[in-house]
Design a protein around this nucleic acid. Sequence first.
DNA 1: AGGCAATACTG
DNA 2: CAGTAT
DNA 3: GCCT
Length: 720
Amino acid sequence: MSSSVTIAEASTSSSSKAAMTRGKKTAAAEAKSAPVKKDKSGKKKKKRELVTPLEYAQRLQERLLEMAATRKSHASPYLRGKRIFYYGGDMQYASEETRGRMDYIIKHGGTVVPTYDPAVITHIVTTDNPPKYPFLRLCSLRSLKEIPDHIPTVKWSWVISGASRRVNPTASSGKDAGKAGHTGNPDGDTAEQIEDASSPPPVDFKLMFHAAFKERLDAGITPYISKARPKPQKVMDPAGHDHSRVTPSEKGSRPNNSEISAISEFTLDRIEPKESEIRDFDSSSLLTDRIPGHSRFSSKLQDGAPVAGSSRESAASRTLNNPELDPLASFYEQARAEKEADNLQSSLSSDEEQDEGADSGGKCVPEHAVSRKRGFLCDSKPDEHTDCANQDVIDKLQELKILHKAKLSAEDNWRVYAYDKAIRALRSYPTRIRSYEEARAIRGVGDKTAQKIIEILQTGNLRRIGYEKTEDVEAINTFQGIYGVGRHTAFKWYANGCRTLDDVRARKGGIRLSPCQEIGLKYYSDINSRMPRSEAADIFNMIKPIALSIDPKLFIEIMGSYRRGKADCGDIDILISRPPNDGKTHQGVLRKLLGELHRRGILTEDLSLPDSFDDLELVYRGLCRRDSSSLRRRIDFLTVPYASRGAALLYYTFNRSLRLKANKMGYSLNQRGLFQGVIRNPSNRLEKLDDGTMVASETEEEILRILGVPWQEPHERIRG
DNA sequence: AGGCAATACTG
DNA sequence: CAGTAT
DNA sequence: GCCT
């Protein structure tokens, strides 16, 4: 083992030196001159600069091209044809060891693939004792079982052993690199040299001796069998807008060198490192926090199909998609955002981001568990709520609503729904309510609620709250504040004797937590607090350039409350797509992006992964943070076929009422499009008897037009 | 009296 | 399939 | 709970 390190490092320095003497910059040398993240002072670092493994691998590939152009390495290319994903256990920055090993792989004819992509790689090579869970996270895998059988997972020692035992050190003519890829054998050029010859290459049982994980001892030895979880076929959109979707047969097919994932070439081949793009994110030069979606790529990305492109588009709406069209527009947007922050603040108005969550949580969470009522804690606005003429009423109803959320019955469910609606209506009601009749006249306020309103107005109190507010309800609400815990689980825990979060932490009553719930518990207060808008902007501004470095043509937008201009956000929703007009798609991008974000420590935990990364339509949920001293924040990534981007934006930035309106008009709106003629089974609403016809999906505009909704700026989209 | 959005992941 | 989440 |  120590010998392997020695070899690797020796090779590093020798190859660097060789390249340097040619007067070319090596990858390592380039790395040294690269500006470093967060070096705002601009002072140069004396020590070597930090580079992520991805970047390092990318540069190595560049250097490889140079070398090929100039002259050949005299090292034996016994790794030719091996496309190796190397896992060094170093997340943030590539260590010396990692760099050395990557250099070594390249030098011996192998290809270093910067990200785990089962369609591309032939081998996974790791350190001697790779930590399993970090490895899985980095690859966005739920378990090792998801790695295809034809890809061996071996330790570095496997590479070294191949070097020392190789039979024929002479470089083969080396025409083809990929064909022998799956045989996985660095032990001599045997496999490659027989190549397409008569007998199949000998199986390399030595793989087992170097297996990185015992779970995968025989990986690479058994024939290729996809273990990908089968996923029910998704419905093609009826309007046939979905030309870009990959068919199931395609996606299940065996990896093939020529047609790898559409964008992988950006990662595999020449990656222009673009320091400035990648690292500028925390210099203040990129977006200010009020200008969603701005970047130097924005204009290209619009590509003739802007999301909200239309003549009716207001200045501000263009701003959102194309800020650079009008420099003043950004101020306009900012002004409105601030104004809204002042007026509506506290989020309480949108149904998407109920701030409440486990109220009463304050009792159990010593930390800064927020008084969700106000949903602040972090933001900048001094003057919080008030402004609503009936704020006291709203507060009481909200409190009652939360109490009902702890109940199991479907009835209470709908009760909550109704309170929600009434509260939203009250929030936008301009004047102080004076009578029962006046209250009743408000849409969403019925007899019962009107009575309650009067009681609050007259007594300043709601007796109902007092007698609903019992110990069990309080505890259950606290538990429900844990991500992944709903009313049933919370109820169960209560029944098992848990009363506080500490009880849960102690697993009182023998309760069990899913992995997701453990994360939810660990970061209870983080997750239940909102972030200032500026933090969401910072995070998005870090992520966007990274995504664009994977594929510059990506369409990437932030949605949700941020896009609606809120002053604080409960989470970050990011939409990713890609115009397919050059025959490529964003297929495969998400996994790479996630891996890179994990490496950089931006993503910290996964909450749920898509069933398969092969589709164009994916959902990811996780936690992220801006830097090591920030709180964890909820983040979602959604990818959709390009033709659905309008529907997706609408779906995730508008609220429920739009979907309701669509229903009333006989349409059905989902994240893929607006459909007409959907017929559902009356007894089972979830079953579609007829999928209907898609009538719109590309832009928000066309959908809104059909629904008869006047264009609204995202930040105006509170209610239908 | 019946609807109240629609859909994906987890175990 | 039930539970949870968006 | 409210609405149709």
